[in-house]
């Protein structure tokens, strides 16, 4: 597994088509990992782009870290990743919480970002997200898996349940993730959002409970377009080929100037 050091921690990365002229960085969501892109979306984008994926700290095959889950720390990690790979500017794609990281990159390091694709980025002020963390216990996970993961068709077995349980236990009880997420609750209200000038594609599931967040972002981001696809919050897993092709077309178009 390709591992690099980011801010002195081991981070698992994957790259496709290193010869590609432009780079697309793919950021996954909370409690997920880079595999959400690896099998379908990344290979489609790699027909035209150099594709970089990485596992967020404590996720997938990356090293566990007790702190630094706020968007400033997460974007510091992205900056260090880009510098390590000697990438001056890239297209940034983020799914769910990864979408918030991508958006924060455009705010903090606009020179590093070409275009943005935000897939199902949630409003951090939505209580449902934080309730999951507050109410977490193993029974919750079992109930959640039994009742809410059917849209991706994959049911967890005993070993996977244990693996996931250990990850949630670690993240919720041994890291600063709860307090770090609270810091971000007003992110959608921040003035800095209105200053983002990057061309942005917003991809949301038409039946997703995050769709309102997409509509909010479309109003606030001046060069954004909202694309609703048939599906819910799991849209990259439900419709990976459509999602990848929409992104590919959007990223291939020449950047409008001046922005």
């Amino acid at each position: 597994m390709p591992i690099i050091n980011i801010n002195n921690r081991k981070v698992h990365i994957q790259e496709l088509n290193k010869e590609g002229r432009e780079t697309v960085l793919l950021i996954h969501g909370m409690f997920s990992n880079l595999s959400v892109y690896y099998f379908n979306i990344a290979p489609i984008l790699a027909r035209h782009f150099h594709v970089v994926m990485y596992d967020l700290k404590s996720h997938g095959m990356s090293e566990r870290v007790t702190h630094g889950y706020d968007l400033n720390s997460m974007t510091d990690d992205v900056l260090d990743l880009l510098n390590s790979l000697q990438l001056s500017s890239v297209h940034v794609v983020g799914y769910s919480f990864g979408g918030l990281i991508a958006l924060k990159m455009a705010i903090r390091y606009p020179d590093k970002v070409k275009k943005l694709v935000l897939i199902e980025a949630p409003d951090p002020d939505d209580d449902k997200t934080r309730d999951i963390i507050d109410d977490y216990n193993k029974e919750f996970l079992e109930h959640y898996v039994e009742n809410f993961t059917d849209t991706t068709k994959v049911k967890m077995g005993k070993r996977q349940m244990e693996r996931n349980h250990r990850m949630y236990e670690y993240l919720f009880h041994e890291t600063t993730i709860k307090s770090d997420m609270l810091i971000e609750r007003d992110f959608f209200k921040a003035e800095e959002l209105l200053k983002v000038s990057k061309e942005t594609l917003l991809i949301y599931g038409a039946s997703s409970n995050c769709l309102d967040a997409g509509k909010q972002l479309e109003k606030k981001l001046k060069h954004s377009q909202l694309l609703e696809l048939n599906g819910d919050h799991n849209i990259p897993i439900q419709e990976p080929v459509i999602v990848a092709n929409k992104m590919d077309s959007f990223l291939k178009q020449a950047i409008l100037s001046p922005l």
Binding site: L34, S35, Y38, F39, D55, G60, M61, G157, Q160, R163
Partner: peptide
């Protein structure tokens, strides 16, 4: 997925 219970990140490692 069913018998070996490999999740997607394990299949990435396998690949």
């Amino acid at each position: 997925t069913k018998d070996l219970e490999m999740d997607s990140i394990e299949i990435v490692s396998f690949s």
